[in-house]
Design a protein around this nucleic acid. Sequence first.
DNA 1: TTGAAAGCGCTAACAT
DNA 2: ATGTTAGCGCTTTCAA
Lengths: 342, 342
Amino acid sequence: MRAAEPEPSGEPVTMATIARIAGVTQPTVSRAFNHPEKLSPETLDKIMDAVRRTGYVPNMVAGGLASNRSRMLAAIVPSITNIIYSALVQTFAALVRERGYQVMLMESGFDAEEEARLVRTALARRPEGLLLTGVDHSPACRRMIEGAALPTVEVWDLSAQPIDVCVGFSHDGAARAAAEWLLARGYTRFAVVSADDPRALRRRTAFCEAVAAAGHPPPDEILFPGFASLRRGRDALSRLVADGLLAPGGKSAIFCSSDVLAQGILIEAQARGLSVPRDLGLMGFGDQDFAVDLHPALTTVRVDRSMLGQRAAEALILRIDAVAGSERRIDIGYRIIERDSA
Amino acid sequence: MRAAEPEPSGEPVTMATIARIAGVTQPTVSRAFNHPEKLSPETLDKIMDAVRRTGYVPNMVAGGLASNRSRMLAAIVPSITNIIYSALVQTFAALVRERGYQVMLMESGFDAEEEARLVRTALARRPEGLLLTGVDHSPACRRMIEGAALPTVEVWDLSAQPIDVCVGFSHDGAARAAAEWLLARGYTRFAVVSADDPRALRRRTAFCEAVAAAGHPPPDEILFPGFASLRRGRDALSRLVADGLLAPGGKSAIFCSSDVLAQGILIEAQARGLSVPRDLGLMGFGDQDFAVDLHPALTTVRVDRSMLGQRAAEALILRIDAVAGSERRIDIGYRIIERDSA
DNA sequence: TTGAAAGCGCTAACAT
DNA sequence: ATGTTAGCGCTTTCAA
């Protein structure tokens, strides 16, 4: 590797270098980047020419220190490999980028302590804003953020006491709506298959309450730690069948905490020669891209993840710009998507 | 939001603040963080006490400027929502984090021009290293990186002329191995279903050549732009069936550029009452987590993505530490995983 | 073991 | 429209 810039010495190119070449002072070079309209076209030309010839790239860490604007946002999600979260980050990052922000992404692994540690690490870079997943954080974490007076958006959930702003939907409401939809379809026996993250757990509880309120026996529950997978779904169905979910005498349905789980159940049903929805109704959660392409197409609860990222980006930027009277609690809702599996 | 630190004024807490409280000079506070062994235990205690009471978090942007070590790595992948790439980043980020590095992740959307733009943006933060996907970059991009003399690791592919280091495997070799495996199983009619990224395209070509070399008719090819999905797989099978892939007179198999595609084909086959592998052999690529849990379990080519991230992290850190004689080309290989779909 | 002094590369007043 | 002057909050010599 050799240096491409035609600088005689191996000196790094700085604004001072450009200034020397263009025959101006260093702050003028700074203006060329930050307030080009304040310079005469000729000066601007000379500077940009020097920039081109040297391959100069402004040093944002120095700029950030001087201006106290890092132009960085930190985002902490439970898992970067889970499309549920990465799709949100994708939209979020694309939008804030148009406003000149970069995103530093971190993964907490569904662990509040790790999340607190990551917030501390992030704070060291002096981000201008923070995106957090969920509304359940460690007290220390919350204290740190409030102490730093850092604009923060919490996504995927709604809270009566958000740290700053939250963008999400009612998990209780969504689960209740799912239960009522299934009830209206004549299902009388239920099971819930769920991961154990705080939001899935709340949906589980709300679903079970709605079933009980309708006077039906309590749903079978299968909970597992960590993330959803096809295997978790397949195993869950095996256990539910063994436990008699499909015994004669009722019309059975399973409510899953994610579409992936539902897909696993679908595969296991097929392997066992069970027909969905004839032998078993199935409802997913999330309406991931693949849900519509399953066979049978999956009935599920749609949450617009891209919208989540978009509203989060907008809300966070409003907070950063200290726009007065911006909303503190943004509800993006949910919708039952009726397809063929229930 | 209120400031948590017991600073009387609303002044931001800096090392100078801590120094004042602890009764030492500011550089001594710096030493407390970077070379604690050089301080007397009592001084260290006083400083750490002040840190705790104020909630002080060191400013890495100032530190980075002063030391010329940003402790940042930039990673550019085609898509952050594709687990193929995000799993690699996950491992990579976890490993480099142990060495005190954070990673700023960016998404190029399979576009070399966008990649070049992102490299330029990344360079502005003065990262200490760079992770790039693939070995096909725009000339300008390559020039920028070489000009900055930035330690760089290219992943997912092997190159005779890496920018710096590359970690990957032979796509030609993997596709040839897949073809030979299928040939040895008695398949005589083939199709390839593939995305159009550079690596998938090379596998497609190598696969077709191997089939031709065996004296069989050229495979049907279905290429599509962008990323793989179940829908792409389902549509591909529909077209292949319409085009007579399954007409009597031969034993047919499909080689896919990803497991997701294969899964889509599996679903479409099931919807059409076709049996895999009886009516049709099917081979995926990647051995994603779900491949083993499909029904039938998917025969595929395993690439150890986590290993890719691990070796990339190790290699990049060696380059950053300027370890002489470190490898330039790291082959992690591939392996045919025989399961039930072919 | 600690302090004093300089400087990293930039932005932001304030002058002119 | 441009130059001058001061920092931003650290790390890193070099002294003591």
